[in-house]
C-alpha cells in the first residue's frame, strides 16, 4: 500500500498531466490532417505544407513570447500592435538605408519591441495596472502611434531590398526560411524555460505569487522581463511580417494578438499561470494553421475561421480548467492518503 502511494508522487502526476496535454494536441493534429487529407485533394501536397509553415512561423515566434507572459499569470494583448509598428519601422529603415544589412535591421526591430514590451512590464509590475487593462490600453496607444507614423501612406514591396524579401521566398531544404527562424526561436525559448533559473521563476510566479515572493524571487523584475521578452519577440515577428507581407500600412497585423493567444491557449498554456511548454505552443500554432488551411481548401467561408478561433479558446480553457481541477483534487487526495498512511505507520 505504501509502495504504491509513494510511487505516484504529485510531481509525477503533474508531469504525466503535461505530457497528456501535448499528446492531446498531437492527436488532434493527427486527426485534423487525416480528415482534411481525405476531404481535400491538395492537402498533403508539398506546396500546401510550405504555405502552412509560412503562416505558422510568425505566429509561433510571437507566441513563444506571449507564453512567457501568460506563465506569470498575466496577458499581453498589445503584441499585434507591436508587430504592426515593428513591421512598419523595419520596412521604413530599409527604405531610408537601402543597403542596411538584414541582421542589423532585425536587431533594431527586436530592440523596438523590447522597449515597447518593457513599458508594458513597468505598467503591470510597478504601476500595478492589471495586465488585461494595461495591454488593452497599449494596444490602442501603440496602434495609434503606428497610424500617426505611417501618416496615411504605406511602404510597398518595390521599395524594399531583395536581400530582405528573400526571407519570405527562400525555402532552404524545402522548408521556408521563416519556418527555420521560427524553429530556432522555439528551441531557444524551450531551452531557456527549462534551464535558465530566471525563466523557471515564471512558473513559480504564475503558480503562486505569494509563495514565490516568500521564496525570495524578485517578482517585479521577472514580470518586467517576461513582458520585455514578449515585446522583443513581437518586434522580431514584425520584422518577419514585413518580409512576408512587404506592403506595410497602418493596419498591418491588426487583431494578430488573437491568433497568438489562440495558439498559446490551445497549446496548453494555462491562463491560471504556471503551466505551459514551448512544444505545446508550437504544436498549438501548427494545429490552428492546419485547420485554417483545411478550411480554405474545403472552400469553407472564411467567416467561420474567426468563430473557430474563439470557440477553440473556450474549449481549450474549459478542458484545461477541468483537467487542472481533477489534478488538484487528485493531488489533495493523494497527499491526504500519504499523510494518513504515515500516521498509521507512526502509530504501528
Amino acid at each position: 500500500m505504501n509502495g504504491v502511494v509513494r510511487r505516484l508522487t504529485p510531481q509525477k502526476l503533474a508531469a504525466a498531466a503535461f505530457r497528456l496535454r501535448e499528446i492531446g494536441i498531437a492527436a488532434a493534429l493527427g486527426i485534423s490532417v487525416l480528415f482534411f487529407a481525405i476531404r481535400a485533394p491538395d492537402f498533403l501536397s508539398v506546396s500546401n505544407w510550405q504555405g502552412i509553415a509560412q503562416n505558422v512561423a510568425i505566429v509561433a515566434v510571437v507566441a513563444v513570447g506571449e507564453t512567457m507572459v501568460i506563465l506569470t499569470r498575466n496577458i499581453d494583448l498589445s503584441v499585434g500592435s507591436i508587430v504592426g509598428l515593428s513591421a512598419y519601422l523595419s520596412a521604413a529603415t530599409f527604405v531610408h538605408h537601402h543597403a542596411a544589412p538584414v541582421p542589423v535591421v532585425a536587431l533594431i526591430a527586436i530592440a523596438i519591441g523590447l522597449g515597447l514590451g518593457f513599458v508594458n512590464g513597468v505598467l503591470v509590475a510597478v504601476a500595478r495596472v492589471p495586465a488585461i487593462i494595461a495591454t488593452l490600453a497599449t494596444l490602442g496607444i501603440y496602434r495609434g502611434i503606428d497610424d500617426e507614423i505611417t501618416g496615411g501612406k504605406n511602404i510597398t514591396a518595390y521599395q524594399l531590398p531583395d536581400s530582405f524579401l528573400k526571407l519570405a521566398s527562400e525555402k532552404p531544404a524545402g522548408l521556408p526560411a521563416l519556418a527555420w527562424i521560427a524553429i530556432g526561436v522555439c528551441l531557444v525559448g524551450a531551452v531557456t524555460l527549462r534551464w535558465a533559473p530566471w525563466a523557471r521563476d515564471f512558473y513559480a510566479i504564475g503558480s503562486n505569487p505569494d509563495a514565490a515572493r516568500f521564496a525570495g524571487i524578485l517578482v517585479r523584475r521577472r514580470v518586467i522581463t517576461a513582458f520585455a521578452i514578449s515585446g522583443a519577440l513581437a518586434g522580431l515577428g514584425g520584422f518577419l511580417f514585413a518580409a512576408r507581407f512587404p506592403t506595410v500600412d497602418a493596419v498591418a497585423a491588426k487583431n494578430f494578438e488573437l491568433d497568438v493567444i489562440t495558439a498559446a491557449v490551445i497549446g496548453g498554456v494555462n491562463v491560471f499561470g504556471g503551466v505551459g511548454t514551448v512544444l505545446g505552443v508550437a504544436l498549438g500554432a501548427v494545429l490552428v494553421a492546419t485547420i485554417q488551411d483545411g478550411f480554405i481548401l474545403l472552400r469553407i467561408s472564411e467567416f467561420w475561421r474567426l468563430f473557430f478561433n474563439g470557440f477553440a479558446i473556450v474549449v481549450a480553457v474549459t478542458i484545461d480548467a477541468l483537467v487542472t481541477r481533477r489534478l488538484q483534487d487528485a493531488l489533495r487526495r493523494r497527499r491526504a492518503e500519504v499523510r494518513a498512511a504515515r500516521h498509521r505507520e507512526a502509530q504501528a
Binding site: 489562440t262 491562463v271 474567426l306 478561433n309 474563439g310 470557440f311 477553440a312 480553457v317
Partner: peptide, 16 residues
C-alpha cells in the same frame, strides 16, 4: 472558468 479567458474566446467566437 476564468472570465478573462472565456470572454476573450467568446469575443472572437461571437464576432465570427
Amino acid at each position: 472558468l476564468p472570465s478573462l479567458a472565456i470572454t476573450l474566446g467568446t469575443l472572437a467566437a461571437y464576432q465570427g
